[in-house]
């Protein structure tokens, strides 16, 4: 029976390794923007994959893998870091923008990164899913269990806020010149 053959040959470890290689970069970046710090992001991804390992036999439809991992990560974050999230805004912005090896250091990008840190979760999170991973409005709405026009409004506001940051930057530069 094909199912049996598949289960014998694709050892759990090989499947797991494929998942980690394919999705850990995305999950790390998502976790970083959910938690606001690198060490918390690493912990979150580790927790997510440990849970995924325990549940891996339940995943038979490989097309579901990314959404499944993303869902686990969101819930692990809610479970583990609810309290920590409150400290998000305390993160030292200067130390973030000076870590040039980890971040794109162009001034407009740095300004946006700081602005992104300052955005409320409800504006930042859908933007991360849409811009970094190409999630559609409907997919985000389903994940958040919100109507899609609510998500559209949040994305709209998020971009308006970030656009204002760049425009503010430009007028600063003009003043200096």
């Amino acid at each position: 029976m094909p199912g049996k053959v598949y289960e014998d040959m694709a050892s759990k470890e090989a499947r797991y390794e494929n998942l980690v290689n394919a999705y850990s970069p995305w999950l790390y970046r998502y976790a970083y923007w959910l938690s606001g710090e690198k060490s918390a992001a690493e912990d979150l991804v580790q927790e997510t994959f440990l849970r995924a390992w325990r549940f891996l036999d339940s995943l038979k439809d490989e097309a579901a893998a990314k959404s499944w991992l993303t869902t686990i990560l969101r819930r692990e974050n809610a479970r583990l870091y609810e309290r920590k999230r409150l400290q998000y805004s305390d993160v030292d912005m200067d130390s973030i923008s000076s870590e040039t090896k980890d971040f794109d250091a162009r001034p407009e990008v740095s300004a946006l990164r700081i602005a992104l840190k300052g955005l409320q979760d409800k504006y930042r999170e859908p933007l991360v899913l849409q811009v970094l991973e190409g999630y559609t409005l409907n997919e985000i709405a389903q994940m958040f269990e919100l109507p899609s026009n609510t998500v559209a409004t949040r994305l709209h506001r998020a971009r308006q806020k970030l656009r204002a940051v760049l425009q503010g930057d430009e007028s600063e530069n003009r003043k200096r010149r």
């Binding site: 390794e17 850990s24 991804v45 994959f49 090896k101 971040f103 740095s110 946006l112 811009v131």
Partner: peptide, 26 residues
């Protein structure tokens, strides 16, 4: 252009050898 810049701002570097670390941990 704004979205390109947002994407750059969001793309934080993944720690070197991160996938290997996850696998080792497991």
């Amino acid at each position: 252009g704004l979205d390109d810049s947002i994407r750059s701002a969001l793309t934080v570097a993944v720690p070197e050898g991160f996938a290997a670390k996850v696998l080792l941990n497991q």
